[in-house]
Design a protein around this nucleic acid. Structure first.
Length: 480
RNA sequence: GGUGGUGUGGCGAAGUGGCUAACGCGGAGGUCUGCAAAACCUCUAUUCGCGGGUUCAAUUCCCGCCACCACCUCCA
């Protein structure tokens, strides 16, 4: 079954046909590094991490580029956010950018996101941006005013094709344009003249200044992926003006199509409210990781299709967490039983169920990366696996290995939601040995019907996060 | 006002022109168990925002309306 992707450019689900067979060039808008990354970032980048993982699982050789925005862009206040933080912390702007870039990578690593192949920084690509701006000027798509350069929206008949904002429709709604150096209110800055107090500044043919917000993505995508490439990802909140402007700049400068498939991720709210500093409901990834384990965060976020809006609430998180645990328990049990199972294919009747689940999982992912359905197939598989493993009948090692491989291929490699391979939850051989020792002592107590002692061991372990479950064939444990 | 999106059971959330509207959580009952936990089984939306229309048939297509959300020029 072929991969299909909902292309925002055209607003329809399309067969995915890469530019070069077997290869995928993919660009995802990265963060502006002036603050700690939050769970909105997590949702976005987990989504694209899974996209890349699935493409690779499907056999594509993927080149994944995700930028780091570390140059100054203006905000409402008229000031560059990096500059604001720099002043507040009495640091240099690039020091601030570096600090938060590292924090971003740390958080992404902790969430289990595979790093992009290239993480280009806007500050390191100013010459490329200037070159592209010069090209736009030469081709009559941009003009210089007072040391700034603006893109002439009227020169691009395609402007608005991604967001469906056509100029002619817009114009009627534009109130009397305020006094501006722009020809049209819709024109956007490619290069901005730096006022004396602006710290982040570079030399350019138009004097000292700094690049516009959108041009970095156009320049870096071109440099690493070419004028035309396969997939452009980002958040839906940047559809306009950012993504629209990227297309306009790139296609006018390169005279070639830009990204062929646009995938935009739905926005995230917290308890139904948009995260914002003024409300004070921003949840950073580091804070979230103190409360929840990363696999459950990933699982939770993939319970909703990537393009849909997503609400991060404790209640919904708990529900998802329980669902995750069901799968994780089954995998843990499978691996535990692998340690002592006899070779052979006892219980092989389940293999057809395993194959069906793998096929259903693949079909779901091929259908515009439908992770919710992919997870549903794993839940269905888990019911069958649990029935088998808890049924008391012998299960051969070959069968257990097949089950483990199915989970690893799907929940592990693609969704990235499985705990580490250590059956105990991954806290080291010494801890495992200590727990096993206590379990053995408890088994003795149980054998002599000393329930007080056996319950005490179980309760004390529970206090430090080690949960015991008694089975007919022994006791299994896990770390909460 | 413009553009786009969403509205499905107690909660989260898939989905389809017509088989019993996935899956998870929660709830009820049961099995298993020293107890617990885990697990399994059964039940839990005559119904898919509202009103029209198309159709033999719509939650799914079309129109209108209502509600909520996002973005709307230099705020990833």
């Amino acid at each position: 079954m072929a991969l299909r992707i909902y292309n925002v450019l055209g607003r329809e689900k399309q067969d995915f046909v890469p530019l070069v067979e077997g290869r995928v060039g993919m660009y995802v808008c990265g963060p502006t590094v002036y603050d700690e990354p939050h769970i909105g970032h997590a949702k976005n980048y987990v989504a694209f991490d899974v996209v890349v993982r699935w493409l690779r699982k499907s056999g594509y050789k993927v080149l994944y580029v995700q930028n780091i925005t570390d140059v100054g862009h203006l905000r409402d206040s008229g000031e560059d956010p990096i500059q604001i933080v720099a002043r507040r912390t009495q640091s240099g702007p690039m020091q601030v950018a570096e600090y938060y870039a590292r924090s971003f990578f740390d958080s992404m690593d902790a969430l289990g996101n595979i790093r992009p192949d290239i993480s280009p920084r806007a500050s390191g690509h100013v010459p490329e941006q200037i070159k592209m701006i010069e090209t736009l000027i030469e081709k009559g798509h941009a003009y210089v005013v007072n040391g700034s350069v603006y893109f002439d929206v009227a020169s691009d008949p395609d402007y608005g094709k991604l967001s469906n904002r056509r100029l002619e429709e817009q114009e009627e709604n534009v109130r009397v344009a305020e006094r501006s150096e722009k020809r049209n209110p819709e024109d956007f800055a490619l290069w901005k003249y730096a006022e004396p107090e602006h710290i982040l500044r570079w030399d350019s043919p138009w004097g000292e200044g700094f690049p516009g917000w959108h041009i970095e993505c156009s320049a870096m995508a071109k440099k690493y992926l070419g004028a035309t490439f396969d997939i452009h990802g980002g958040g839906i909140d940047n559809l306009f003006p950012h993504n629209e402007s990227e297309i306009a700049q790139s296609e006018c400068a390169n005279e070639a199509p830009f990204a062929r498939y646009w995938m935009l991720v739905g926005s995230l709210t917290v308890e139904g409210v948009k995260m914002s500093k003024s409300i004070g409901n921003t949840l950073t990834i580091q804070a979230a990781l103190k409360r929840y384990r990363p696999e459950t965060i990933r699982y939770f976020m993939q319970g909703v299709h990537y393009a849909s809006p997503f609400d991060f609430s404790d209640e919904a998180f708990e529900a998802a967490s329980k669902g995750w645990e069901r799968i994780a328990n089954a995998v843990r049990l499978t691996r535990k039983m692998m340690n002592s199972a006899a070779p052979g294919d006892d219980g092989s009747a389940i293999l057809s169920v395993v194959e069906t689940a793998k096929a259903d999982f693949a079909a779901a992912m091929d259908d515009d990366f439908n992770a919710p359905i992919a997870i549903a197939t794993l839940q269905g598989l888990t019911r069958e696996v649990n029935t088998l493993l808890n049924g008391g009948a012998a299960v051969g090692l070959d069968v257990l290995k097949a089950i483990d491989a199915a989970y690893t291929d799907t929940a592990g490699d693609v969704l990235g939601v499985l705990p580490g391979h250590d059956a105990a939850g991954g806290d080291g051989a010494r801890e495992a040995a200590l727990v096993e020792l206590l379990i053995a002592m408890r088994a003795q107590a149980r054998a002599s019907r000393n329930w007080a002692e056996s319950d005490r061991i179980r309760d004390e372990l529970a206090k430090v996060g080690v949960v015991l479950e008694d089975r007919a064939d022994g006791t299994v444990w896990k770390v909460n």
